[in-house]
Amino acid sequence: MLAGLRDIQRFTIAASDGDIGIIKDFLFDDRAWTIRYMYVDTHKWLPLGEKVLISPISLRDIDTEDEKIHVALSKQQVKDSPSIDEEKTVSREYEEILFSYLGYGYYWTGPGAWGEYAHPTALVNQQALEQANTNLQEHDKSSANHLRSIDELQGYDVIAGEETVGHVHDLILDTENWEVPMLIIDTHNWLPGGKKLLLAPKHIDDINWLEQRVHCTLPAEDIEHCPECDHDLLNDEGYKLKVKQALQTVPKS
């Protein structure tokens, strides 16, 4: 299923024994263009509740009607999970502690977005954990994890050539693998009618976090040829094929 992160951000997280919080943000890998964590506020549900990180590795089901994401964790597991410092970035060291606590295999020790696997939930098994520990022996533990806030990215200027062509409005999530196949660019200050256009991660050359800018590989005239976003049709097969073909053929100038 494809969905805008702005839509999912209001969903409630449901543990195996009851609701535990509301998504406040997402952390994504700006190299793999993959959502690594949901940042969840638990203070209404858990005593002394605080914000916690929940990985899509724990995913059971997404209920769009009830606006809930069901995870294979109990309230106690979430309550007892390693605490995080909201003022600091999430380090690889913290990830290792969290994954060891949950018994997950490591996504960062394999060749794909989820290590040796195509989907995050595959990391919940003993074989994945054993493979992760084996791979970790040969892995550079000092490597950065490149986790960034979606809230931070939304609103960044999009630069094509030397021209500002819009700003980042949202990211599209593929809930099968939690990768980001597309970005939504709001062009209302640039194009007549204020279209919201779709770009693929391959069209992003660089994200300058200090200057709050996203630099495209495309010139401004090619941005106009990008497909327009229609949220109601995101999961329509005909629309998805049309968008895929359009993104593959950009640029057209």
Results as ranks from 00 to 15, higher is better:
E138I: 03
H119W: 09
S143W: 11
K141I: 14
D151N: 12
L136F: 10
N145C: 11
N133W: 11
P120T: 07
A144Y: 09
A128Q: 06
D151W: 01
G115L: 06
P111Y: 12
L147A: 01
N125Y: 11
H139I: 06
R148M: 06
L136T: 00
D151V: 01
N145G: 07
S149I: 00
Q131S: 15
E116W: 13
W108I: 04
Q127F: 15
D151R: 07
G155L: 01
A113T: 08
T109D: 03
L136S: 02
T134Y: 02
L123P: 03
D157W: 07
Y117L: 01
Q154K: 15
D157R: 06
N133D: 11
H139P: 11
G115S: 09
K141S: 14
N133S: 12
A122W: 09
D140H: 13
G110H: 10
Q137Y: 06
K141R: 15
I150H: 01
V124A: 14
L129E: 10
R148C: 01
H139A: 06
A132H: 01
V124Q: 11
A144P: 03
Y156E: 00
G155K: 07
G155I: 08
A128G: 06
N145Y: 08
E152D: 06
N135P: 10
Q127E: 13
E130K: 15
L136D: 09
V124N: 13
A132I: 11
A132K: 03
A128M: 12
A122L: 10
E130C: 13
D151S: 12
S143N: 13
E116G: 01
L129W: 15
N125L: 09
E152T: 08
E152F: 01
V124H: 14
D140C: 06
H146W: 08
Y117E: 04
N133Y: 13
N125T: 04
T134V: 13
A122M: 14
G115M: 05
N133P: 06
H119Q: 09
A118L: 13
G110T: 00
E116V: 03
Q126Y: 12
W108T: 09
A128W: 09
